[in-house]
Design a protein around this nucleic acid. Structure first.
Length: 277
DNA sequence: AAAACACCCTGCCTGC
DNA sequence: TGCAGGCAGGGTGTTT
């Protein structure tokens, strides 16, 4: 399940493999992706073919691939991995696996492939990625644009449960179900606490979020089933998880069994002793 | 208005 | 062994 650390891992492995290379062709499966929406093949072809890859970066859970077209014109490719999306760099001769939806051909018979069995992901090309509404709408990135003061101000005006607050990409960008559970455990905050009632713990929560994400990035992401980086390697962070996926097992702090409940339609793992309302 | 819920989708797992 | 049903949760659109 790609969240910020998994997306960051893909960006870091992708960057040295593709920056500086040029795209000679684009292929798409023609199958609709997120929200049953079809890719705009014409725009993808127009912006990508003949372009050189200038940079690979991340905003929240989005991957942004910056392109240079000639001396003056730039463009970019936006990729969201959804639940099961993968970006891989592979030799052209390797067979394309089932559910391959987009392929960019590079020099030296290399290809960048977007594979997504559940099709919750998204790919699009555009002249200016940062101007796209989905990027504009993102909240601050917790590793670069968010500090405890800003977080406190945002918490202060929300009546939503803290878990729903942190999952909302418009408020803070990059956290998903796994790392929200982990950060709330580290901060000792119960997932159903109203966001504005956690204001006093903003600094603690901010640090918990940073620690959680940085550890996961150091471990190259969490691989339950699907996640691999652009070279095909899984992450090692599953061993570092404190509560997520540990229902019934002992809390590392107090030994009470870790509980699971459904909040906002998502499984929440937490310790009823260590996390208070 | 903001919060909650339904939906998109496939693969894996459980239970009959 | 086969198959139905439940579950996983990114984001978006709709309802409450």
């Amino acid at each position: 399940m790609p969240e910020l650390p998994e997306v960051e891992t893909v960006v870091r492995t992708l960057r040295p493999e593709i920056v500086g290379k040029s795209i000679s062709a684009v292929w798409t499966s023609g199958i609709a992706l997120r929200m049953a929406k079809r890719l705009d093949v014409a725009v993808l072809q127009r912006e990508c073919v003949g372009a050189t890859i200038k940079a690979v970066r991340r905003r929240g859970k989005y991957i942004l691939i910056d392109l240079q077209r000639g001396a003056t014109r730039s463009a970019g490719i936006l990729v969201h991995l959804g639940m099961t999306g993968r970006l891989r760099v592979q030799p052209q001769r390797e067979l394309r696996v089932k559910h391959t939806h987009v392929v960019w051909a590079l020099a030296r018979k290399q290809e960048v492939r977007f594979v997504d069995p559940r099709r919750f992901g998204w790919v699009q090309a555009a002249p200016d990625l940062d101007a796209l509404p989905e990027i504009q709408a993102l909240g601050p990135d917790p590793l670069s644009d968010l500090d405890a003061g800003e977080l406190r101000d945002r918490l202060a005006v929300s009546h939503a449960p803290i878990k729903a607050f942190l999952l909302d990409q418009h408020r803070v960008a990059g956290l998903g179900n796994i790392y929200v559970c982990e950060a709330l455990f580290r901060a000792g905050i119960h997932p159903t606490t109203q966001a504005r009632r956690t204001q006093g713990k903003a600094a603690l929560l901010m640090q918990a979020i940073r620690d959680t994400l940085q550890l996961a990035i150091a471990n190259c992401g969490t691989s339950f089933r699907d996640f691999v980086d652009s070279t095909g390697a899984p992450g090692k962070n599953i061993e570092a998880l404190l509560v997520y996926g540990r229902e019934g097992e002992n809390c590392f702090q107090c030994q009470a069994p870790v509980r699971r409940a459904v909040h906002s339609g998502r499984s929440t793992f937490y310790c009823g002793n260590c996390q208070i309302r």
